[in-house]
Amino acid sequence: MNSEGKLIKNKNGQILYCVKILGGIILGCLFLIPIYMLFVSSIKPTGEVFDLRFIPKTISLNGYSLILKQKFLSYFLNSLFISTTVTIVALVFHSMAGYALARLDFVGRNVVFILILGTLMIPFSVILVPLFILVKNFGWLNTFKGVIIPAIPHAYGIFLFRQFFLTIPKELEEAAILDGCSPFGIFIRIFLPLSKPIIIVLAVAFFIANWNNYMWPMIVNQSQNKWVLQVALANYIGRTDTPWDAIMAGGVITIIPILILFFVLQRYIVEGIKMSGIK
């Protein structure tokens, strides 16, 4: 192939690449336009929120001042505390369980796996009342532990950890055993470092799920100073006088910490270091 042909091919490739990126950005608009509507609604006066204009007639920060005037900071901190605790504890527990299910050979492995997977299939509305009665008998109503502890066991994370641990090459494990590494050592020194992307994905997912959780905290907690953000937001919605601008502003404010978290962490997702050790 002469150099001219190569150049044409490169040029074509470049055009194709640009088209691809353009397509990616257009697709991005599909994801962003509704979010833009959320943002733009939050800076309209409450009476104009539902004129649904793309560009606001008047700009008002009333919604933000209204929502920040409330005990917003304390709801924010409650949500932050609950979500962070659940996320950290769940990551530790679920990575351990996922490792056992993926890489350890033990009696009853399939049964345990299916039992755990089965818990995903139970509609929450059916255990709502029994769980409430249970938590009440523990004396956990109106406490943070009543919100936090029942949220920790969840098959989703265990299942994802298992699936990713399954893909880690056997050779790495065998080499470590030859070096005299214990099974727990293998888990800590090989599996966890290699699973950084999936740990990040799950950390973000757990955090968001708990950050946005509404039903369970609403049921467990009665007193206003234990409210989480989503309960406080839902409490605004009434038959008349609903401050839609404040609800929209609350919506914007609640996603900002998550976006920052994701933005900071997401670069680790693509490191893809797992295979660097072997070919």
Partner: peptide, 25 residues
């Protein structure tokens, strides 16, 4: 990285708020 973040944004919105926006849309 930029596109990843953009595609991910909807996942961060709570059900109540995202339902309101889509009712608008």
């Amino acid at each position: 990285g930029f596109l990843r973040v953009i595609y991910f944004v909807p996942f961060t919105v709570s059900t109540i708020v995202l339902s309101i926006i889509w009712l608008f849309m």
